[in-house]
Amino acid sequence: MRSRPLLFATAWMLATVPPLYSQITAADREAFEAAGWIAGSLLLENKPDVPPEEPVEAPEETTDDMKTDRASEIEEPVAEAVSEPQFPIDFAKRPRTFLHDAQGLLSPGDKRDRLKFLDYHAGDSAVDLYVHLFDKGQSIPDPEVHAAVLDEAFHDGKPAVVLVYFMGEPQRALLHLSPGLKGRIAPRECKRALESAMLQAMEKNEPSAQLEAFLVQMSIRIYWLERLLGGEKESPEDQPIEVPAKVKITDSLMTQVQPWIDGFLANLKWIGLGISACISTLLASLWWVRNRQHRFPELDVEPRLGGAHGAGIGAVISFTNSQVPPMAQRNQTPDYLPR
């Protein structure tokens, strides 16, 4: 209680002392700014000199399936629009390499590894995977125009999947199908592929490792999309897809077996009925055989030994000694003959 006035006095003194920033003169400030920056200016200034940020244009949600397929519904960070002068990526034609890193976001080693993987994927798959890399926080200015440009660029040639990937933000990745694949792959399948790849990428911390995991999983999912494509009938306007030999064999087998399966399914009711009838007949026959009644012909037999119903001894067996088997008792002999 005695120290309370002392505490009040100390607080008053601290409140009346002007901040350090206000002690810097205008000349000093200019000198410091010319040298680079003023330490603590962001914390101590009342009004920072940083100009206010421009209003951020959030990416528009469109009805186009591939443009709006986001990996998740995670709240997006404020994105910076990508402008043509900043990132001179030419979307109007098919890139020569599968990895397009115009901003140099990847180290040379990582870029070489990712490119090598994408080349390997292109050699093994009927669907190429192209990747456009953007930095974190950037965004596509006009997604509809971007999609139209990509459609024009990938209209001819091998079917391809174009991935727009934002470094460090795998959940913002966009997937674009070439016109030859659109309509043949359901949007939900693409969404699943994106989600799967995003989940794999989110397990990593490093943006480069995230990209690697994302691409590996996307390559796997593209393989399954190819399987889906292999199961459907090709229409004339679709571009031919080079399907691996293994898938071709499976398709031809399925084509041969499919009529049988269809016929079997169509007649399943009758087949089941026939099998049931056979089983019922078999069971009834078994029951009849097991419970069939037999009758002996009744013949007149002369009575013997004064017996009105039967005579004779039939057979007698002794089970006194286990050492005497039944076979030894077959010939019956009189063992007792009282008179």
Binding site: V301, G310, A315, V316, I317, P325
Partner: peptide, 30 residues
């Protein structure tokens, strides 16, 4: 008591069964 078993049959089965048949039957229970 005497540890023996016998099987006899009436005249209806007299033409159809004989001692061998009844003995075979009794052997099954020995």
């Amino acid at each position: 008591d005497s540890k023996s078993a016998g099987m006899v049959f009436g005249y209806l089965l007299d033409p159809f069964l004989d001692e061998t048949d009844t003995f075979e039957c009794l052997s099954r229970g020995h």
